[in-house]
Simulated scan of single mutants.
Amino acid sequence: MTDQTACAGTDRPTWPALFAGFRGKCPNCGEGKLLHSYLKVNDCCANCGEEFSHHRADDGPAYLTILFVGHLMAPLLLVVFETWRPSPMTLFSVFALGCVALSLYLLPRLKGSVVAYQWARRMHGFDSSI
C-alpha cells in the first residue's frame, strides 16, 4: 500500500466538519465549542481534546464575509431600488444596517468553517501523523 492510498483512506469528512464549524462546534466531535468570545478560537476542544491552537484562518473569514455579503446585498439593492424607488436616505439606512448585521452574523460562522476545513484537510498542523 502506498502512502497516497493510506492517506486517501483516512480522509476526514469535509461537509460534516464544515457544518460543525459553521455552528461553532468542534469539527472532530461536533459537540465542544470551537470559538470563545466572538472570534477567538479555543486552544483545544473541551469535549474531545482536539487541538486548535495551530489553525491559520488569518484573513480568509473576512474575505469570505465580504464576498458573501456583497453578492447577496448588491442584487437585492438593485431590486429594491428598481421596484419601490425609496428615498436615498432610506435606502442607505436599510442597506447599511443590513450589511453590518449580516457581516456580524457571518464572520464567526465563516471563521469556524475555515478552521473546520483546515482540520478536515489536515492543513497547518492538523495532521496527527507528522
Rank of each mutant, 00 (worst) to 15 (best):
L76N: 02
G30T: 12
A116K: 01
R56F: 09
W119K: 08
H71K: 05
P13F: 07
D43F: 06
T14K: 03
G9L: 10
D58G: 09
G9T: 06
R109C: 03
T10K: 05
F92M: 10
C48L: 14
D127W: 05
A62C: 06
I130N: 12
W84L: 09
S128L: 10
Y117K: 02
F126T: 04
C7A: 08
C44L: 10
V69C: 06
G49N: 11
V41K: 01
L102Y: 02
N47M: 13
C26M: 09
L91C: 01
L34R: 04
C29F: 10
H36K: 13
P108M: 10
C44W: 05
H54S: 15
P108W: 08
L64C: 05
S93R: 08
C44A: 15
Y105F: 15
G32P: 08
P88C: 04
Y63S: 08
S53H: 14
L78Y: 03
C48N: 12
A46C: 05
F81K: 06
R121M: 05
I130H: 06
L35Y: 07
R23A: 13
D58F: 12
D127T: 03
H36W: 14
L91G: 07
S53C: 10
L72C: 11
P16C: 09
G98H: 13
A8M: 02
L91R: 03
G112C: 01
L97E: 03
Q118M: 00
V100E: 06
A57N: 03
P75Y: 13
R121W: 02
P86H: 07
A96Y: 12
G125S: 11
E82F: 02
A17V: 05
G125A: 07
